[in-house]
């Protein structure tokens, strides 16, 4: 299990390949990548991501340990960036490896749902008009109920 909280960009292909090459006994590897999306009306200059150093690693570790236990994962990877990101840049990725695909897919979805509202990150959209903090959606909180 590897959890990286970093400002630097990461190479999705290289990370996915290294992850898949390092797992033994897995029949399925699922990866998900979150990308900075432009606003519907365009004009996004950057996404600033703030986090709570100290709590971030602990919170993600707790979520990852639960996923590993519930779905019997062979291995798991979470990379989450902070700082100033341009549209199109990858914000984060998760990878899960399991014996079968259902567990790998479900664990990845569980991780995403929990990272969204239980990992201490806050996003701010920067446009020429200024900065707007992204508000959490009720649906994000509701998504946790299914687990």
């Amino acid at each position: 299990m590897r959890i990286a909280v970093q400002a630097e960009s990461f190479d999705l292909g290289a990370e996915a390949n290294a992850f898949a090459a390092g797992v033994a006994g897995a029949g399925a590897v699922v990866t998900f990548t979150g990308v900075v999306r432009d606003l519907p009306e365009g004009g996004l200059q950057a996404m600033e991501i703030e986090h709570y150093p100290g709590m971030t690693q602990k919170a993600i570790t707790a979520i990852a340990e639960e996923a590993t236990q519930r779905w019997g994962l062979c291995d798991l990877l979470v990379i989450h960036r902070y700082g100033r990101l341009a549209p199109g840049e990858a914000i984060m990725m998760v990878a899960t490896a399991a014996a079968h695909r259902a567990a790998a897919f479900e664990a990845a979805e569980f991780l995403m749902d929990y990272l969204k509202s239980r990992a201490p990150f806050w996003k701010k959209e920067i446009t020429t008009a200024g900065g707007d903090w992204v508000a959490a959606k009720d649906a994000d909180e509701a998504a946790l109920d299914r687990w």
Binding site: K116, A136, D140
Partner: peptide, 10 residues
């Protein structure tokens, strides 16, 4: 003690 708005990770 830390105060913050609801988190928006992922």
């Amino acid at each position: 003690v830390a105060f913050f708005p609801p988190m928006t990770g992922g």
